[in-house]
């Protein structure tokens, strides 16, 4: 079931269309990756979901019905450009932000204590934010985003500013939140993290949605027909590959093994390729190359830009 849905959302700024009939649907308890180059319109869409701005046309649905002003309490938002009141104490500030999301003081205190224990940052409670390092402040900010147990969590570049250890901690927390029932919209340029945590992605380019789907389907769809084999035969194999109609573009010898990368000609199945190769070569490993999200991203955006 979809927790969140946007239908034909259009948003115009003076002389510039930021979103052009964008529709997305986010399944409950999943991580939805919202991807796209800088200036594509991701942040605009996120702001519309958060009701910071309203769409010029189109509809937004949350939990199966049209979104209302009071739905804000079901949403947690970690903006890309984030900050806290520098002069305020950490605990006081977290409490304030939780209460602004509609929590009672008592519930907020209880949840805060739980999270501060989990991140082992209880000693910071009475420190001023300006005394914290950037990474420390980011942790506090993460807690204030999730403290009111929102059904929909929106993270805009959550890992920027974190060291690898804390980024990993954060990644695990995000996945744990999903497992506990939260639905997550995740916007980033970091394709590595997309592959690690997203179930579904949508790619926005120049204010239009150009790609949408399950992450495995998307990658399958953008396969280029590339393969990699390993053999103990160290001699030059280009003649063999040419004869079979394969385009060999990389060969590398490492120790007593040679690794070869090639692109198949259209319409051949893996079984046919293997048959052709194994009859002439002692193949010790055979692998179909699935494109990384990074490659998919570049391919899709370049294609879309060529069309225009």
């Amino acid at each position: 079931m979809e927790l969140f849905k946007a239908e034909d959302v259009v948003k115009d700024y003076a002389g510039h269309r930021a979103l052009d009939r964008v529709s997305i649907a986010v399944a409950e308890q999943s991580v939805f990756g919202l991807l796209g180059p800088n200036g594509a319109g991701k942040t605009t869409l996120i702001r519309i979901i958060n009701q910071i701005t309203a769409p010029d046309s189109g509809e937004i649905y949350l939990m199966g019905r049209k979104v209302k002003a009071s739905d804000i309490q079901y949403i947690g938002y970690l903006p890309e450009e984030r900050g806290l009141y520098k002069k305020m104490k950490v605990g006081e500030q977290a409490l304030y932000l939780a209460q602004l999301k509609g929590m009672s003081r008592r519930d907020a205190l209880r949840n805060l204590k739980k999270w501060f224990d989990k991140f082992e940052i209880q000693p910071w409670w009475n420190k001023k934010v300006e005394e914290l390092s950037k990474g420390m402040a980011q942790k506090v900010q993460f807690i204030t985003t999730v403290i009111h147990e929102p059904k929909l969590l929106i993270f805009d570049e959550p890992f920027s500013g974190f060291d690898p250890i804390n980024a990993n901690l954060l990644k695990n927390e995000i996945l744990a939140l999903r497992d506990q029932g939260a639905t997550i919209i995740f916007s980033t340029h970091n394709m590595g993290s997309v592959e690690e945590i997203c179930d579904h992605i949508a790619l926005i380019n120049k204010s239009k949605k150009v790609l949408d789907g399950n992450i495995f389907d998307v990658k399958e769809q953008y396969k280029l027909g590339d393969y990699e084999i390993e053999t103990t035969d160290l001699s030059d194999q280009s003649a063999l590959f040419n004869m079979n109609g394969f385009q060999l573009f990389e060969s590398e010898i490492r120790g007593n093994r040679q690794r070869l990368k090639f692109r198949k000609s259209d319409g051949e199945s893996n079984r046919e390729i293997l048959q052709k190769l194994t009859s002439n070569l002692d193949v010790s490993a055979f692998r179909e190359v699935i494109p990384s999200m990074n490659e998919v991203f570049i391919q899709v955006v370049e294609q879309a830009n060529q069309k225009n």
Partner: peptide, 14 residues
Amino acid sequence: EEKTNRIVEVIISS
């Protein structure tokens, strides 16, 4: 202060 701190985005989403 709220604008330079960027906290305003969090607050007006609440």
